[in-house]
């Protein structure tokens, strides 16, 4: 695929200018009746234009919450208690609500996890997509409609003219996902956050959507944050990868390095649970046990219970990030070194 090529250009990019988006020490707390839980804990992320950052982790690891917090779209009971979100060197968390409203959908757009319920059931698809245009561009009704039809066509929705006037319940899951993408990219955002855009789609459609996203990314020179718990998707579409576990980023690396040489035991576990053609396995090695729920989060390493490499030093203190070379980091007391 075009990954290698992209990778090269990105390296140049990164050296030249600061990243488009940089998240530093982002922490999010949810106040629930059962108490307050910090579900995102000092997360650092970076992504540059034209580049795809893959965000992987098990269900509940805080991927969606991290991204919602960046856009300040958290539910009422969620609040950011720490950190900054620098977008074009501007801290989004300090912007006024009006400025933030202008930015959303225009420079940063998000595709939500569950497209079927993320579309307004009483508005036509066409209305919802052209609304994005009207919100951010001074555009006539006809022009907006024309552009919407183009977008529908672009994301591969057949018969855009008919589909324009249809309602979300008339759309299948894959089509809704495409419509969501059309809505998000209508204003040609600088950054697109796609939250599990391919989960619950069948494999061929999954591949088409990924293809579409990377096409759009290079056409519009966008940055893309791709959330998934599917490493296959990561291998196919990401340039950089951040692995999240229980509210923390535990490893960050360029995609090839990560697959070649995972350094965090959790990453290794994830990779081992993948079926691979180049290696013969009798059965899939899923990681034993399950990730702790937020109310059982500890200060020390949260993977310790399920880890084969741990010792006493893993308990109690949070594992700091170790920089490995220039491009990768890992938060583990005993990172795996190449065998």
């Amino acid at each position: 695929m075009s990954n290698t090529q992209n990778h090269g250009t990105n390296a140049d990019h990164m050296a030249a200018s600061p990243p488009l988006l940089e998240v530093r020490g982002l922490s999010v707390v949810f106040d629930t009746p059962e108490g307050s839980h910090q579900v995102v804990d000092h997360v650092d992320l970076k992504v540059s234009s034209g580049q795809t950052l893959g965000l992987v982790g098990e269900s509940g690891s805080g991927k969606s919450v991290t991204c919602l917090a960046m856009l300040r779209l958290l539910a009422a009971r969620g609040r950011v208690i720490n950190g900054e979100v620098l977008f074009q060197e501007q801290d989004l968390l300090k912007l006024s609500e009006d400025d933030m409203t202008q930015l959303r959908g225009c420079k940063i757009a998000m595709v939500f996890q569950d497209p079927m319920v993320s579309l307004n059931p009483v508005r036509t698809i066409g209305w919802q997509i052209s609304e994005s245009l009207h919100l951010h561009q001074n555009i006539s009704r006809e022009a907006a409609k024309r552009r919407t039809l183009e977008m529908l066509d672009l994301v591969g929705i057949p018969e855009p003219k008919t589909r324009y006037n249809e309602y979300p319940h008339q759309f299948s899951g894959g089509m809704s996902q495409r419509a969501m993408i059309a809505m998000a990219i209508a204003c040609e955002p600088k950054l697109l956050i796609a939250d599990e855009p391919t989960t619950a789609l069948d494999v061929t459609i999954q591949a088409q959507i990924l293809e579409l996203l990377s096409q759009l990314k290079s056409d519009l020179d966008m940055a893309l944050i791709l959330i998934t718990h599917d490493l296959g998707v990561i291998a196919e579409a990401a340039d950089e990868v951040a692995v999240m576990y229980a509210g923390r980023v535990v490893e960050e690396a360029p995609v090839f390095d990560l697959f070649d040489n995972p350094m965090h035991p959790y990453t290794l576990g994830l990779l081992n649970s993948l079926p691979r053609v180049d290696r013969k396995v009798d059965r899939l090695n899923a990681i034993e046990g399950s990730a702790p729920p937020p109310h059982e989060f500890v200060e020390g390493c949260r993977f310790e219970q399920r880890c084969g490499h741990c010792d006493d030093s893993c308990t109690g203190t949070r594992p700091d990030f170790k920089n490995i070379g220039t491009s990768r980091r890992v938060a583990c007391m005993h990172p795996i070194t190449t065998s």
Partner: peptide, 21 residues
């Protein structure tokens, strides 16, 4: 409902979210 979050993510103003969505 999740679609209200979509409206916010689009950059619809508070007023617009209420009246139109």
């Amino acid at each position: 409902q999740p679609y209200m979050r979509t409206a916010r993510a689009k950059g619809a103003s508070k007023w617009r979210q209420i009246v139109w969505h």
